[in-house]
């Protein structure tokens, strides 16, 4: 066994992987999408250039917007830096701060970020930003019960509410993989990820039509470094949700089971590759379905809810 990395070092690497890897994942997904649509598409590193450009620009504040408008991007960014401490990004074992919060805690921190961005959007007084804020809040209130039932399933399956324990349970045997509860919860979680990352069939993320926007509309009034933080934050949120889906539910393989440098580096590489794989699936969905009408989104979320409830039901009877 070669070099070992200190536990706190691995912890820091988890955060760094998400912070620095998220724009790359977004860049690759954008490129894949362009290729699927027969375009050449932007460079893979384009998201980094965009962030650098935005950090160098001046920022404007709408008249009447208060302190929260300026604080929100920082709070949201801090939240997205905190969540990678709580969920299994690179390791199957708990890290020093990993037991600081359970899976509910992670969900709360993500909700706090969404709350601040929405309040900032309401602060601007601009119609489209406010529309985005109210829509986001409505739909996240609807996805909340789905997420709760998914968390219940995770809890019943693994006997704990710590996400990395769940990853351990799934990798323990093939019989854990084919249980209907696990499969149903995974599908429900995937649908939640589609809603939360603003993808078809909920939202067309490349659209510039404000009336069709949900989450994207909230940041319309921010500019310069503030917009850079929000954009970076949403890229990180996407990667966090992908990592949660992959490492807790679908593909918890490739995670490091010890602190050896080699296995941690392999964990980073495999996570990035797995995220790109999810991105390709999402892109395929993006390009083969049309956007749902706004009032049909509730039915989409209801389908996810149905899956999550059936997951809990099959489990509750034992066995399932």
């Amino acid at each position: 066994m070669g070099l070992e990395i200190a536990a706190s070092g691995v912890q820091a690497l988890q955060v760094a992987t998400v912070a620095l890897g998220a724009p790359w994942v977004s860049g690759v997904i954008a490129r894949v999408e362009a290729v699927v649509q027969g375009r050449h598409g932007p460079r893979i590193l384009q998201p980094y250039y965009d962030l650098i450009k935005l950090f160098g620009k001046e920022s404007l504040r709408p008249a009447g917007a208060g302190a929260i408008f300026l604080i929100a991007p920082f709070v949201a960014f801090a939240c997205y830096l905190t969540v990678p401490l709580l969920i299994p990004i690179l390791t199957t074992f708990g890290l020093p701060l990993g037991s600081m919060g359970d899976i509910l805690g992670g969900a709360f921190v993500l909700a706090l970020a969404a709350f601040f961005v929405s309040v900032a959007a309401a602060e601007t007084g601009a119609p489209y930003a406010q529309l985005g804020a109210s829509r986001t809040t409505t739909f996240s209130a609807l996805t909340e019960p789905v997420l709760l039932f998914v968390i219940f399933t995770v809890g019943l399956l693994s006997g704990t509410d710590l996400p990395y324990k769940m990853a351990e349970t799934v990798t323990s045997s093939a019989s854990q993989l084919v249980r209907p509860a696990h499969l149903l919860a995974s599908v429900a979680m995937f649908l939640v990820v589609l809603v939360e990352t603003g993808r078809i069939p909920v939202e067309s993320h490349r659209s510039t039509n404000e009336l069709g926007m949900i989450e994207h509309a909230r940041t319309l009034e921010h500019s310069g470094p503030y917009l850079a933080l929000l954009t970076w934050g949403s890229q990180m949120k996407q990667m966090i949700l992908y990592a949660l889906l992959l490492n807790v539910f679908v593909l918890p393989w490739g995670l490091a089971s010890d602190r050896a440098a080699g296995s941690v580096v392999w964990a980073i590489v495999s996570l990035l590759l797995k995220c790109v794989a999810v991105g390709v699936v999402v892109t395929a969905i993006d390009n083969s379905f049309s956007k749902l009408r706004l009032f049909k989104i509730t039915e989409f979320i209801a389908a996810a809810f149905l899956l999550a409830v059936i997951a809990v039901l099959t489990l509750y009877l034992g066995g399932g």
């Binding site: 084919v178 249980r179 209907p180 099959t314």
Partner: peptide
């Protein structure tokens, strides 16, 4: 019964197929 109270692979597969039938009913 498999480890950790999980059903065996056969049971899990059969359960999953049955759940797919249920989902088709909902569809």
């Amino acid at each position: 019964m498999g480890p950790d109270g999980a059903p065996s692979v056969l049971n899990g597969t059969v359960d999953t197929i049955a759940v797919v039938v249920l989902l088709a009913e909902f569809a």
